[in-house]
Computed example of a mutant assay.
Amino acid sequence: MPASSQSDPPGPSVRLFFALWPDTATVRELGGWAARAHATCGGRIMRPDTLHLTLGFLGDTPADLLPALVRETQGRRIQPGTVILSRYGAFPRPRIVWAGPADAEDGHPDEGAAQLGAEHRQLWDWVRALHPARPEPHFRPHVTLLRNADTRELPAPAPSRIEWRYERYVLVASMQDGSGRYRIVASTQA
């Protein structure tokens, strides 16, 4: 067989993303939001240990890139901030219901969401040098609460606002064992 038609089998990879990881009190509040959304929308409530706000999705990443990503993440600092989760939202096609901050479309954008947008851009500025993935075309900070939900009608209004104070973000690996669990592999400095 000619060399041009042969392909090497893919090497081992790990599925990665960067995220804000909530503290226990924030997880508890998000659980209340999820229960309320579930009463209206049905679907599957996300497990508390999987709740997070994605800053950047790398996807399947060659395992040999992981050490450099870990080192670079551990050497980073972010500007501490607070994002206010104040509304429900939905992605209809994947049938996801989420909690998120107000944005320009709501008429009252959250300053914390704007700061997260800046962190998202800064993250991708350095990741591009190490990883071939590309950033999402439109960054919308959110926490997935339900999957496989009926997104035609959302609970209104949202329960009390959640003030999520953050000081770092983490690099997370999706476990490849079918458990749907995540493992934090690195964190920025506080």
Rank of each mutant, 00 (worst) to 15 (best):
A90E: 03
A90P: 09
L123Y: 09
D110Y: 09
S160Q: 12
I78N: 06
G81L: 01
V97M: 02
A90N: 05
E163D: 11
R76A: 11
G56R: 10
L145M: 10
G75D: 03
L123C: 07
D125K: 14
H138K: 10
Q122L: 15
V127T: 14
E136Y: 09
A68D: 14
G81D: 07
R147E: 05
I84E: 04
P159M: 03
G81N: 02
E167A: 14
V127F: 11
T50H: 12
A149V: 02
S160C: 05
V70Y: 06
V143H: 01
D106G: 09
L55W: 05
E111L: 11
R77W: 01
A104G: 06
V83W: 02
W164D: 03
Q122Y: 00
V127C: 04
Y166K: 02
F57V: 08
T82A: 01
A156V: 03
P159G: 07
L116S: 05
R121G: 08
H52R: 10
S160N: 06
T61D: 14
E111D: 13
A102Y: 13
G75A: 12
Y166I: 09
T50G: 08
P155A: 02
T151S: 00
A99E: 04
A102W: 02
R121T: 08
T73Q: 13
D103C: 13
T50W: 08
R152D: 09
D125H: 15
A102V: 03
L53I: 07
F139W: 06
L66D: 06
I78C: 08
R77A: 04
W98T: 03
H138L: 04
I84W: 05
R134Q: 15
D110S: 10
G117C: 03
Y88V: 06
S160L: 12
F139R: 11
T50C: 14
Q79A: 13
D125A: 14
D125R: 15
A114T: 13
V83Q: 05
P159C: 05
A113G: 15
T61G: 07
R121A: 14
V97L: 01
V83Y: 01
R47V: 09
V83T: 10
Q79L: 12
R121K: 13
R93M: 04
G75H: 15
G100I: 05
P141E: 00
D60G: 14
L65S: 06
L55Q: 09
S86T: 10
L123D: 08
D106K: 11
A104S: 13
A114C: 02
W164Q: 03
R161M: 14
F91T: 01
R95I: 05
T82N: 08
T54E: 06
P137V: 06
L51R: 02
R76H: 11
I84N: 09
T73E: 11
Y166L: 06
P48W: 04
G117H: 08
A90S: 14
R93G: 05
P67T: 02
E72R: 15
D150N: 15
P159L: 00
R95V: 07
R161K: 09
P141Y: 04
R93I: 00
I78R: 03
V70G: 08
T144I: 01
R71M: 09
P141W: 07
S86G: 14
D106E: 04
T61A: 12
P101L: 06
F57C: 07
I162F: 01
G100W: 03
